[in-house]
Simulated assay, not measured.
Amino acid sequence: MSGFRSSGSRADKADIERRLATATRGAELLDRKQRILQRAIDGLQGEADAARLAWEEQAALAAVWLQRAAGLDGSDRISEAAPDVPATVQVRWGGAMGISYPRGADCVLPVPEPTGGSSALAYAASAHRDALQAAVAAASAERALLLVSRELVATRTRQRAVENRWIPLLHEQLAEIGRKIAEQELEESLRLRWSAGLI
């Protein structure tokens, strides 16, 4: 855009006016996108806060039961109670305004097997399963919030560039072309008057 050189023609003026209309419409769309993203972030922030709180509560409960199980059953029995198959996570993706982000995640846990230890060990295993599921939900919510927040920052940056650089530059170019057209019209008028012998 900065390399634009105008000959001062009406075609140049029409071209700049089209570009200016496009830039103005682009700024309006970016502003609208910002408002939509901000509303999405407000909702996602609430979800992330609730998910983090749930995870912290579940993790604290799991830690209590693990301590009890360690006192009653010992670390060897706890290790034996750990499943051989790892848990897996399935992320559900969604999106808004052209960006994709997690809309939830499911933690698929291995089928629990009888531990043979104390009831504290069984409660510890159950509490850790719940804590893991809560951690996955919290991670999904945090990731969604991060991705949408990044898009909001990028959108604000683009809007500032359009409003503070592109649109003013186009206005300057339009004014310059207007001056050149006015000069050309004055010169043409003087030529016509001179050729008609009026000057």
Rank of each mutant, 00 (worst) to 15 (best):
G95Y: 04
A96T: 13
A96H: 05
M97C: 13
G98L: 00
G98M: 00
G98I: 00
G98V: 01
I99Y: 00
Y101E: 04
A105H: 09
A105P: 07
A105D: 11
A105Y: 03
D106T: 08
C107T: 14
C107W: 12
C107G: 14
V108K: 08
L109F: 12
P110Q: 02
P110D: 09
P112N: 08
P112I: 12
E113K: 15
E113A: 15
P114R: 11
P114E: 10
P114H: 12
T115P: 05
G116R: 09
G116V: 04
G116C: 09
G116S: 09
S119C: 01
L121R: 03
A122G: 04
A122Q: 06
A122K: 09
A122M: 08
A124I: 10
A125R: 08
A125M: 07
S126N: 08
S126Q: 11
A127Y: 10
A127M: 09
A127H: 12
H128F: 06
H128G: 11
H128L: 07
H128D: 09
R129N: 10
D130V: 02
D130S: 03
D130G: 05
A131E: 05
Q133G: 13
A134Q: 06
A135I: 01
A135L: 05
A135Q: 07
A135C: 02
A137T: 15
A137F: 06
A137V: 13
A138L: 01
A139S: 14
A141M: 04
A141C: 05
E142H: 06
E142N: 08
E142W: 09
E142P: 05
R143F: 03
R143G: 02
R143N: 07
R143K: 07
A144K: 08
A144P: 08
A144F: 13
L145G: 02
L146Q: 13
R150P: 00
R150A: 13
E151D: 15
E151W: 11
E151P: 11
L152K: 07
L152E: 06
V153H: 03
A154N: 14
A154P: 01
T155N: 01
R156I: 06
T157H: 12
T157W: 10
Q159A: 13
A161W: 03
V162H: 03
V162Q: 07
V162A: 11
V162T: 14
E163N: 05
N164D: 15
R165I: 14
I167L: 00
I167E: 02
P168D: 12
P168N: 15
P168F: 15
P168K: 14
L170F: 04
H171Q: 11
H171P: 00
E172D: 11
L174H: 15
E176M: 12
E176Q: 15
I177Q: 01
R179E: 08
R179Y: 03
K180T: 02
K180I: 06
A182P: 00
E185G: 02
L186P: 00
E188I: 02
S189N: 09
L190I: 03
L190W: 01
L190K: 04
R191L: 04
R191D: 04
